[in-house]
Design a protein around this nucleic acid. Structure first.
Lengths: 194, 194
DNA sequence: CCCATCCATTGATCTAAATCAAGAAAAGCC
DNA sequence: GGCTTTTCTTGATTTAGATCAATGGATGGG
């Protein structure tokens, strides 16, 4: 059985690899299983590894003045970590924990650095990964500033139906920058209007 | 006189270059002067070039339901463009125009693609450019969701004093997701509290 | 230098969402 | 299966910011 199947499926969609190259990159990866509600990263720690989700789900969030604000969800096929902390080896500003029992594929900072310097295809993969994340975040931020709440929620549901199924509603409210009560009322209004 | 001084200064902070490499890359760049209040890019067009600001200032914004929402300012040393449109050659979703007479250094899509394939240092530069932009945007988005307006404004002033000097206040309000009236009142409150 | 446009401020309302509070439903655990 | 915890909903109230409206000041083009 191939534990790295999903990782390389996504990698190869971005950058084709020969068998040898795949084996080379695979030798830098490690597997980690984490059970539900465990921290992958806590604010203040250095983010020593970047994680690809092979199975399960996680959330990345910050805590400001006592309130949690979810920045990102990560389910199968997504990549998650505190990028600034990972690259600079400074303390993380985000928390990351699991929402379900999960299996992660980890790339450590030293492995990352070494692969960048010896395997150009890894650099290309990483560039495309970050580029995609940046474009998506810009769209999201733009929507947050300009679209009414209803539209932001329906957009989210349409784009991430799988997350809606698996994640409690109050966390989706947090992701959208709303209170749970407001999201509940928004859903009610949408149900009526339909 | 070296018109590309600032561009290569920033490039070399990320990736050192030999004279020959610099000349190679320079041969792919073109200069463009645009006077104040002119479009660099309009929504619906394809973003054919990415721009580095050697002189002047620009804004990138979207229009949703009649309202302008400024996504980004770009002054000397910043890079601006519609990344999704540039990379995919699909119609742009943002407008970009100048706030002052400006001088831009342009990298066309074909030049970009060619440099990516022949000059690894350009790929590294571009990767680091996008990575930095992504980290900054994530911070900004996180602040938008979690910090009170006062703090968002003081944070902006502290981080971009030059932009505050050169850009009308109502545009800063737009960038922060506020109406001009609200920003005016926020500033008044801050002045009192001091 | 004058006029027009743009810009910032202030005041009076209005409204969407937060907050406070309570209870019902669902899920998880021993 | 019953108990606890989590989650979602609904209602009443408050509040931050939007909207509407008006004025004075600054800027810039001709």
């Amino acid at each position: 059985m191939d534990l790295y199947r999903l990782y390389f499926q996504q990698f190869k969609e971005k950058v084709p690899l020969t068998i040898e190259e795949q084996e080379q990159i695979q030798s830098y990866l490690t597997l980690k299983k984490i059970s539900k509600k465990q921290y992958f990263l806590q604010e203040g720690e250095v983010c020593k590894s970047y994680a690809f989700v092979e199975k399960g789900s996680l959330r990345k969030y910050s805590i400001e003045t006592g309130n949690e604000h979810i920045i990102q969800f990560a389910i199968e096929g997504w990549t998650v970590g505190d990028l600034l902390s990972f690259l600079s080896e400074e303390p993380a500003t985000y928390h990351i924990d699991t929402l379900e029992d999960s299996e992660l594929i980890l790339m450590s900072k030293s492995a990352h650095d070494e692969l960048l310097s010896i395997q150009p295809k890894y650099e290309t993969y990483f560039r495309l990964l970050i580029t995609g994340a940046y474009i998506a975040l810009q769209r999201r931020h733009s929507f947050t500033l300009s679209l009414p709440v209803e539209q932001r929620y329906t957009d989210f549901v349409e784009k991430y139906p799988e997350i809606v199924k698996r994640v409690p509603q109050h966390m989706i409210a947090s992701y959208l920058g709303l209170t749970p009560e407001t999201l509940s009322r928004v859903r009610k209004r949408l149900a009526k209007g339909k």
